[in-house]
């Protein structure tokens, strides 16, 4: 008897989970929800843009998911329930386009360059990018699959840095966190991350950083549930107001 009750309970829980998923997919009425997948480096700016969008559209709830661009592009292709995708470079967006996830194609909305950050007070006494080659300096970068890792690797090569990083982090915010916590002596992040971290880190310019400018594209996903809201959000990002928010955070104009 008890066993049967337990089984019934499992079924009820499973069924409950399924219906609630169904509700999610069909929520077009009051309290509409817009889901935006955005690169980790967009954490601060897109949070601000989402607030602005919610203010302009009362009753609308913008949900944000930040991760590595490669992860998000993969999720978008797998049909993740989301409306908008914004990545930190064109090749991860191209992967989403190739996977038929962005039918109308992307638009570039910002640019970014990389910089070297050290913990506040610069405990390892790093004064130039070349110091990464000094023995005993532990620096961290992104994995090569993430845009920050790809550009980071080519900047390291361009500056003939031969030493290996101490760790390959999965996204740029993980690199920033390791440096801000003084677990690493230095890390390669975007200038916008250095701006966002404020006094927790100090920036050191990377020679030739300007030769590797990242283009940030945004696009509406194939599985969009709120097409009008999605278009509105993209329009806000591309508007003068959106540009101003992005420029304040250190992003460049495409």
């Amino acid at each position: 008897m008890r066993r049967r009750a337990a089984f019934a309970l499992v079924l009820v829980v499973l069924a409950g989970g399924m219906t609630s998923c169904g509700d999610d997919a069909a929520s077009t009425d009051a309290g509409a929800e817009l889901t935006v997948l955005a690169a980790a480096s967009l954490t601060e700016t897109f949070t601000e843009l989402a607030t602005a969008f919610e203010e302009a559209n009362p009753g609308v709830d913008v949900r944000l998911a930040f991760d590595s661009s490669a992860t998000l592009a993969g999720q978008a292709v797998q049909g993740a329930p989301a409306d908008v995708l914004a990545t930190a470079d064109t090749s991860t967006m191209q992967a989403a386009v190739d996977g038929d996830a962005v039918p109308d194609g992307p638009t570039t909305f910002a640019t970014n360059v990389m910089t070297l950050v050290v913990p506040a007070g610069n405990p390892a006494g790093i004064t130039s990018f070349a110091d990464l080659d000094r023995p005993g300096v532990d620096y961290v970068v992104c994995v090569a699959t993430a845009p920050c890792g790809k550009v980071g690797a080519s900047l390291l090569a361009a500056n003939e840095i031969g030493s290996d990083p101490a760790s390959l982090e999965t996204d740029v915010k993980a690199v920033l966190a390791k440096v801000a916590a003084d677990e690493a002596d230095a890390g390669l992040v975007y200038v916008t991350d250095a701006t966002a971290a404020g006094d927790d880190v100090e920036s050191i310019e990377i020679p030739q950083a300007d030769s590797q400018v990242l283009q940030y594209p945004i696009g509406i996903l194939e599985q969009v549930r709120e097409p009008a809201l999605a278009q509105g959000f993209v329009a806000l990002v591309l508007s003068d107001r959106g540009r101003a928010i992005l420029a304040d955070a250190g992003f460049g104009t495409p």
């Binding site: 590595s68 490669a70 992860t71 994995v143 699959t145 993430a146 990083p165 101490a166 760790s167 390959l168």
Partner: peptide, 20 residues
């Protein structure tokens, strides 16, 4: 951390490759 040859275990490598 996660670096090939010192700290990258099989699960870490799988997670890294999942993004590529």
């Amino acid at each position: 951390g996660n670096f090939p040859g010192t700290t990258q275990t099989m699960p870490s490598l799988i997670y890294t490759e999942l993004q590529g």
